[in-house]
């Protein structure tokens, strides 16, 4: 079985995000970019499936700017076997919307015929939480979202999902799309020898046009603003004082 893992290049979670002066988005010029943390978890899970003998090949796909090949190199260094870069924009500030991403992925799936797509539940830059679900609809495949445990057993997968009330375990038919949540696993560090090996692994480059997908944005960003600054805190002298302050504020 092949496992396909889409990975997105996003602003690093450590970076203090700044809104562009004209409010059109956040400033990405000269900012550290990394793999979306949820996608790291998806890659890790795919590699574990391979290590457990349940998958033969792990393919990482990224859709975006050319620089996303660095993100793919990270996936390869972690243990993915090969990578596909779909260049869909040359402007780092252009976000490719979930529907366009899902359409491109659907085309890649048709070409590669994986038995499983493991994706992050959302990207930390725009928090859309939509690509996996859209891909499922486009392919007519089953889906299991927000996975915190994944078991592949023959022609189906058993997935524990993080839902509002707690955990839910479902069984889905393969091929399937699983979107992963934070607690599924702890991604490994890419070791130095594997980073060196990654350079020699295949990385195919395509364009959105190769798949006949139009990536022109359908949404328009009206305004981007910084969150309101946090109000100054106070120090309380005792638990009693804390409780009375919370009551005053109507919080308890």
């Amino acid at each position: 079985m092949k496992v396909l893992v889409p990975v997105k290049r996003v602003i690093d979670y450590n970076v203090k995000v700044r809104v562009k002066a004209d409010g059109s988005g956040v400033d990405l010029a000269n900012v550290k970019m990394s793999m979306n943390p949820f996608d790291e978890i998806a890659i890790e899970e795919a590699i574990r499936l391979k290590e457990a003998g349940k998958a033969e090949e792990v393919i990482a796909v990224s859709i975006g700017v050319k620089q996303a090949q660095e993100t793919l190199r990270t996936a390869l260094a972690m243990g993915a076997d090969r990578a596909i870069l779909v260049v869909a924009s040359d402007d780092v500030h252009q976000d490719i919307e979930p529907l366009a991403v899902a359409k491109i992925l659907a085309a890649v799936v048709k070409e590669e015929q994986p038995g499983l797509v493991l994706c992050g539940k959302q990207a930390i830059d725009n928090d859309m939480n939509a690509t996996g679900q859209m891909l499922s609809a486009l392919l007519g495949w089953s889906q299991a979202t927000f996975a915190s445990e994944v078991g592949v057993e023959g022609d189906h997968a058993v997935v524990t999902r993080e839902v509002d009330g707690g955990l839910q375990t479902i069984k889905v038919k393969m091929p399937t799309i699983i979107s992963v949540d934070l607690r599924l696993n702890e991604p490994r560090y890419a070791s130095l020898p594997n980073i060196m090996k990654a350079k020699k692994k295949p990385l195919d480059e395509k364009t959105a046009a190769d798949y006949g997908v139009d990536v022109t944005p359908r949404l328009s960003v009206v305004k981007t603003t910084e969150p309101a600054a946090r109000a100054a805190g106070i120090k309380v002298g005792s638990v009693d004082e804390l409780v009375s302050k919370l009551k005053e504020a109507g919080l308890v």
Partner: peptide, 14 residues
């Protein structure tokens, strides 16, 4: 050499 920019960045990221 065997290294390129992405590899160096990867090493420093790890």
């Amino acid at each position: 050499s065997d290294l390129d920019r992405a590899a160096v960045m990867g090493i420093l990221d790890t």
